[in-house]
Design a protein around this nucleic acid. Structure first.
Length: 739
DNA sequence: CGTAGTTTTGTTTTT
DNA sequence: CAAAACTACG
């Protein structure tokens, strides 16, 4: 056997060599599970002589899939391109593109994202006269989605809808599903549901894939939902060479239907399943790992395992409660600068993790001010931007005119004088004659009282039809440029002339380059193929750890990643754990948050900061939160108390019952008070300018110094720039030169 | 039909 | 605090 397998530890090796029959690998955080998976695939191909095309590996993100393929490549040399390594969703799309016609769908279906789903649901509610005040589309959407997860068809759902609300949902669900089919569209849940449907209705198709995928591996098994569980079960039922990898402590997608019992009951589902635990952590320092273990030990119903590491104890954990979210951001910026200047760190060594995407804003503002390069992963992603969705809607309309949602999106964008009254008339006509929206538009002359707008509608449908013909002889980039040109989309933005409009134009340029990239990389680039790729992409897929920038993301997005230094921002009750999880009163909700905390902590290799703010602006309201309960679950011996300085002024008496970091630590027996009040000196450098001087800044140009204040290890300099206004800068970062 | 101005609403997390 | 939804007017 090749010596590359010798680098594995005993348990890892056991997992690699166990190739036949069901296998559950309980892989703790940082225990090298990706190494195990890649080596296992290599072993199957090299030593067991399994054909690469007989292997299916399912990962959580496209990024993970790509990485896995690359790593297998470097282990086995070649052949990895024939392995199916992809996410659940892309795997299903691949299967459905070949076989969905067997259950009465068109193989060129489009994929609806959450935005599209919401619009369609709203249309259905309108049609059914469901009061949107009484029934929120979001809650209806999540009911429908969870019904699909459980493989409840509209018919089955109707049968068990006893309550009034369920009956309403049932009506909407039935119509929604019907409209999806008419639009020749599938939503995310459908990708799984329809694949299972194909498998169940067409035994020959199922049989083909069972035989093809003799060896199946599923990563992040703790986050699979019911359909995914059924999907895997169906595929693996013939050979039973199913290897699932997961960690029940890292199950963080319950809100999306993930069912933790899939992993907890694996041994029941597959008798004689082998179970291997990977408990040695190679990632984090002892202190960090111990903190993580302490937090997670407060959960019930876990698989019994304890992570250990041979790594050094490392630094203590830096827990701090700052005055407000601005101070929190400022502190992070300062620490990063310090690390770069005095510890030789790079920007890319740092990750900032938070509970909610909204928290990124303040941090982003601070980083811009301090010239810290950063990248935000998640939130409103590129493909969710209005201008991008608009252009894509044109492409979708050209690609598939039955996609009502896309057509409606662009029918009057840019304005061409087709307003709500016209649209309503066309909509009614479409509904009454059971045709698609675009077809109705084409038959505009049949619709009564439409003399005025029929000309404009005709021009629009003609435009689309022309492009549809031209498409055959054009590249995708040319087609898109043609759309932009002939609609005057960019021209209109130029006329606006605002910063925002220019940003949108830049984004459209970015879309063009993504199209170019797609056309260059793909052997057979098609419009449909591009739209599919776009639909299934997640923001994390574009994250590149090589780029030397600080990365900001939610703890959910950070799963599977690791960084030398990690900040977790917003360690406050009500934010993390979230208000929702506290107020629901359900133990499970808090436990899920705790698992998320465990995920967050275990991302750190060397240095961990847990930060909170005394007050924080949330949705326009200032909130005073208590210290997160998760902080209290960590033994104070692990905190670097030297840096846990007290929060001085409380905002007012009303909030005095809330514990701040200081009073908590004071009342805690573990606390050894050590220089608790000492502020770090302003550092060993001096400023060569003073108040009243003119200074020069890289970005803002020349300005006048209004004030200089010592703050932490640095000076905060207030400068009035004629071009940019008054800015507060950290002296170390701003690199101001006397002018 | 389009616009500007006003009111309401919402936030966990995402393939 | 924003974005979305609504309202009133030309």
């Amino acid at each position: 056997m090749d010596k590359k397998y010798d680098s594995l530890n005993k348990d890892q090796k056991k997992a690699v060599l166990h190739t036949e029959g069901p296998l559950l690998i309980l892989a703790g955080a940082g225990s090298g599970k990706t190494r195990v998976l890649t080596h296992r695939i290599a072993y199957l191909i090299e030593e067991k002589k399994v054909a690469p095309w007989n292997i299916l590996a399912i990962t959580f993100t496209n990024k993970a899939a790509k990485e896995m393929r690359e790593r297998v490549d470097s282990l086995v040399g070649s052949g990895s391109e024939d392995i199916w390594v992809s996410t659940f969703h892309s795997t299903c799309v691949k299967i459905l593109r070949r076989h969905i016609d067997k259950i009465g769908y068109d193989r060129y279906f489009t994929i609806y994202d959450t935005d599209d789903q919401k619009k369609l649901i709203r249309d259905c509610m309108k049609q059914l006269n469901v009061d949107p005040k009484q029934f929120k589309e979001n809650s209806i959407l999540s009911s429908i989605s969870s019904a699909k997860d459980k493989l409840l068809t509209p018919k089955k759902f109707e049968k068990q809808a006893y309550e009034y609300r369920d009956q309403v949902v049932s009506k909407v669900y039935t119509m929604y599903q019907d409209r999806l089919k008419k639009n020749n569209a599938l939503d995310f849940d459908d990708l799984l549901v329809k694949t299972v449907e194909v498998f169940r209705l067409c035994p020959d198709v199922l049989s083909y894939y069972q035989d093809k995928f003799r060896y199946i591996m599923v990563d992040e098994y703790q986050d699979t939902n019911h359909v995914q569980y059924i999907f895997v079960g169906l595929l693996a039922s013939r050979y039973k060479n199913l290897c699932v990898v997961g960690d029940d402590d890292q199950s963080i997608y319950r809100f999306r239907g993930a069912d933790i019992s899939n992993i907890l009951d694996f041994e029941k589902d597959f008798r004689n399943a082998e179970v291997i635990k990977l408990e040695q952590n190679y990632r984090s320092s002892k202190n960090i790992l111990e903190a993580a273990n302490q937090v997670i030990s407060n959960n019930y119903g876990r698989k019994n395992k304890t992570l250990y590491t041979d790594n050094e104890s490392g630094d203590l954990i830096n827990y701090r409660c700052l005055q407000n979210e601005q101070a929190e951001a400022e502190f992070m910026a300062g620490e990063i600068i310090k690390g770069i200047e005095s510890e030789g760190r790079d920007f890319k060594d740092y990750a900032i993790l938070y509970r909610t995407n909204a928290q990124s804003r303040v941090i982003e503002e601070r980083f811009i001010l301090n010239n810290i390069p950063y990248k935000i992963v998640g939130g409103t992603s590129f493909y969710q931007r209005r201008e991008i969705k608009d252009i894509l809607a044109y492409l979708k309309t050209i690609n598939n005119s039955t996609d009502d949602i896309a057509v409606k999106r662009i029918i009057n964008v840019p304005r061409r004088g087709i307003g709500t009254t016209t649209i309503n008339k066309v909509e009614n006509y479409a509904y009454n004659n059971d045709v698609n929206f675009f077809d109705a538009l084409c038959e505009v002359s049949q619709i009564p009282n439409m003399t005025r707008s029929s000309k404009k509608v005709g021009a629009f449908t003609h435009f689309i039809k022309v492009l549809r013909v031209e498409m055959a002889t054009m590249s995708l980039v040319d087609l898109t440029n043609e759309v932009i040109e002939r609609t005057g989309y960019v021209k209109e933005l130029e006329a606006e002339g605002t910063d925002e409009a220019h940003g949108r134009i830049d984004n459209i340029g970015e879309l063009i380059s993504k199209l170019t990239e797609y056309e260059n990389n793909e052997e057979e680039p098609t419009l449909n193929g591009f739209l599919e790729e776009v639909a299934l992409i997640a923001d994390i897929d574009n994250y590149n750890e090589e780029t030397n920038v600080v990365v900001l993301m939610t703890m959910h997005s950070a799963k599977g990643l690791e960084f030398p230094c990690v900040f977790i921002s917003g360690m406050e009750d009500g934010l993390f754990p979230s208000y929702m999880s506290i107020s629901s009163g359900q133990q499970e909700d808090i436990e899920e948050e705790r698992r998320l905390c465990y995920v967050g902590i275990t991302r750190a290799k060397q240095k961990l900061y847990l930060l909170g703010a005394n007050s924080r602006m949330i949705r326009g309201m200032t909130q005073y939160n208590q210290v997160s309960r998760f902080i209290k679950e960590i033994n104070n011996k692990l905190f670097d108390l030297e840096y846990t300085k007290p929060v001085q002024d409380m905002p007012n008496e009303k909030t005095s019952f809330r514990k701040n970091a200081h009073s908590f630590l004071k009342s805690n027996p573990y606390v050894v008070k050590k220089n608790a009040n000492k502020m770090p000196a302003p550092g060993n450098f001096t400023l060569n300018y003073e108040v009243g001087d003119l200074v020069k800044h890289m970005k803002f140009g020349i300005g006048e110094v209004l004030a200089i204040q010592p703050g932490g290890a640095d000076y905060e300099v207030t400068v009035n720039f004629p071009s940019a206004g008054v800015k507060k800068l950290m002296a170390r970062l701003a690199n101001l030169k006397k002018a």
